[in-house]
Each structure stands twice: as C-alpha cells, then as structure tokens.
Design a protein around this nucleic acid. Structure first.
Lengths: 211, 211
DNA sequence: TAAAATAGAATGAATGTTCATTATTGTCAA
DNA sequence: TTGACAATAATGAACATTCATTCTATTTTA
C-alpha cells in the first residue's frame, strides 16, 4: 500500500534525522562506541546520505558540536541583552543551563562532554569557544564593577562554573535524583558567597550592633 | 652482541611497563584512539605478554583504574589520619591533588577523566568510588561539626570539588599556564567563602565598630 | 626438566568509506 | 498541462582497512 507508506514517512529533513540520531547515540554510548551503521539505522537514512550531508562520522560530530555551541552562544547573548548587571547575568545563565539540563539533557550532555578533543580536532576545548569566553568576560566585568570581590579570573570562573558543571554532570549521570532547578538558589548562595563582597552582610550587623 | 643487549634491557617488570605505556598513551590520545600494538611498542613487550597479564585492552584499563583509584584512596586516608578537623582535611586533600597535578599529571588526568563509563563498565563513575565517598563524608562531618554552614551535600561538594576539578582540568588542558599550587590559597578562600560561617568575619567587624 | 612467561605471525570480525545505481526535484519548451 | 531533460539527492551492496585477539613456538625461570 503505497499510500500508507507515504503517510508513514518521516517528514523531518534528512540532515536533522541524522544529527538527532547521532546525538542520542553519542550521548548514550560515547562517540567511539557508535558506528555509522547504527546512526543510519536509528535515523532511518541510508549510509550514502550520511556521507552526502556530512562527509563522514567525524563530520557529523563536528556539525553537532558547532550547532550546540551556537545554541549556547545564543543563550548567553540573550541573557546579556536582557540583564544589565553582570552578576545577574551569571545567575541567569546558570538558571537557564539548569533548566536546559532537564528539558534538553542530550544537548547539555554533549556540550559539557569533557573530552571533545578525543573525537574532534585537537583543541576542541569548550572553554575556548565563543560563549565560554563571553562568560569569562562577564565574570571579569562583575569584578571590575565591584559586584564580585576581585580575584584571579580562573579561580572565580572555576568556582562559579566548575560548581555548576559538576552538578550538571552528577545530574546527567543519575547521581542527583531531583531536578536541578530545586538546587538553583542554594548553589548560587554557595558559589557566590565567597565571591560577593562581605560589606553588605557585615555592615548590617555593624549597624545593628552600634544602634 | 648478546651482552650489550642484555644490559640494555629494561629492568622494570613487564606488567609495570605495560601499565605505564598504556597510561601515557590513554592520557595523550584517549582510550579508543590507542591500539594494543601501540602499547606493545611503547612498553617494549609482546602482544602475548599483554594478554597473559591483563587479558586484553579493557583489562589494562580496568587495572589502571583500580590502581589509580586506590592511590587516591590512600591519599585521602593519609590526610584523614593526619588532620583532625574535617575542614583542614578538605583543604589538605585539595592541596595534595594540586601538587599531584604538577608531579603526576597523567595519574590525575586519568583519574579525573570524566567519561570512564565509555571504556570501562557502565557505572564506573568516579563519584561512586571509595575515596570520593569518603570525601563526601568529610564534607558532611564538617557541616555537622559546624565548621561549614549546613547546606545540601551535593551543593557543598560540587562547589568545593567542582571548582577544584575545573582548575585541574584547565591546567591539564594547558589553558592555565602556572602551576596550580600558586592558586591554592586563592581557590580555598573562594570556594569555602560561601560555605564558612560568616560569624568570624562579621564578629570581628562588630567588635571593631563597637570599640 | 617441568612450568611459567614471552614472543609475534596469523586471523577474522567490526566498521568507516566508496561508488555505481536509482529516485526525486526543478526547469523549460511544446 | 504535459513531457523531456538535467541536476540534485538518496540508496545500499561491496570494499578496504584497522585492530583486538588467538595460538603455537620459543625462551626463561624454578
């Protein structure tokens, strides 16, 4: 029955089917444990199409990487244009990434895969990509505008985003069982506590003591 | 000349040669980009020896993993038996891991490889290993003894050790160019600042203000 | 001299890639 | 609207290579 067959056809374009299948398999099993034939089967496409569209297995990975980094870049840009204070920008980026971890876990899992150089080009380090350079700039701006105590940039960004990344990974690994947004404000207090100026708290105490 | 040949022989036992060669190659290129033949060449051993000692490529990885996790476990035990205060224990563990990152970078790189499940068994998550369970226990003890503000255990450990791990990874990736011990006290202040009780600082300010 | 360890050539299964063939889509003259 | 034709895309069987592993012969050790 050609009619039924036609109706049952997947309307999604081929390249999307390939990327989606590859993303799911890569995240589930790891790049090197996934064969092109598996992607072909899951995506309901032919081997040839994969080579027409992406030139090979590494081409798929490269396209996925670019796509996903771009998505995070847009997220950062969006936050920057909607919040003036660098500190608020940091908080909002973390909030949105926590939400993404729940709603688009595979994208986040692929983005925060720590070992991109093992299957992409040698220095495919996420910290060298546009969005993560922007994030460092935001942290530096926060220090310059005295929203955060001044300290070394690596120390500040590692504390803030290292803590965040760790929680994301624990959540993706199923070690943390509750959705991340539940932990959001707790984490913000903890990672920023050592970076915020103490004056605010201390001053109010001083005022209380003096009066 | 058999004499010269004999003298030139590597005196290190075969299994050590295999593990050392494998560790260096795995860290440099990633498990899946290393062939048994490369390990065999670099270690100056035969294929047969590798299979006699470790049963295969995965056996090497498993042995390495066990060995290295055990080494970190001993480091933690050592710190615990030499320091009474949980807070001091946390600080000392970070200090020693920072030093190890400089002196035994490959061991640290293999240990903190985020994707062990991709080449070991399915739940080879480092956070489920003995030393990292002990580390969580130390953090919880610090909170119970009021050395740290009480908060969720995952939030606390992620902040403390997420920040540390991030710096170690940036250092191993060559992004941070100075030896990590230079950053030690800065990082401690920052990651613990939001977890330490504020009383100490605030109280001294109050005293200063009142007097 | 028996047992254990080492050696490395040979094997075969897995898998990334090619390419000749088929199908689809778009274009334009009749 | 139709039909012819060209260009583009899709297909999948066949290929070539890599690589973990096996196995028998040899050497070393006890």
């Amino acid at each position: 029955m050609p009619y039924l067959k036609r109706e049952a056809e997947n309307p999604e374009p081929i390249d999307c089917r390939i990327l989606t299948a590859a993303l799911n398999l890569f995240v589930a099993n790891g790049y090197h444990n996934v064969s092109v034939h598996e992607i072909q089967k899951l995506g309901n496409v032919s081997i040839g199409s994969i080579y027409n569209h992406f030139g090979g297995k590494d081409g798929i990975a490269k396209a996925l990487y670019d796509h996903i980094i771009n998505e995070i870049d847009e997220l950062v840009d969006d936050v920057v244009s909607n919040f003036n204070s660098p500190l608020k920008q940091v908080e909002e980026i973390i909030r949105q990434l926590f939400e993404h971890t729940e709603s688009h876990s595979n994208i986040i899992a692929f983005a925060f895969h720590a070992k991109h150089p093992e299957f992409l080009h040698e220095d495919a380090l996420i910290c060298k990509t546009a969005p993560f350079i922007k994030i460092r700039d935001i942290v530096e701006a926060a220090m310059e505008q005295d929203e955060l105590r001044r300290t070394n940039t690596w120390v500040a960004t590692s504390t803030i985003f290292g803590g965040m990344i760790r929680m994301i990974q624990l959540r993706l690994d199923g070690v943390i069982e509750e959705p991340l947004p539940e932990y959001y404000s707790m984490l913000i207090d903890t990672i920023l506590g050592g970076l915020k100026k103490q004056e605010t708290n201390a001053e109010s105490l001083v005022i209380a003591a003096v009066s």
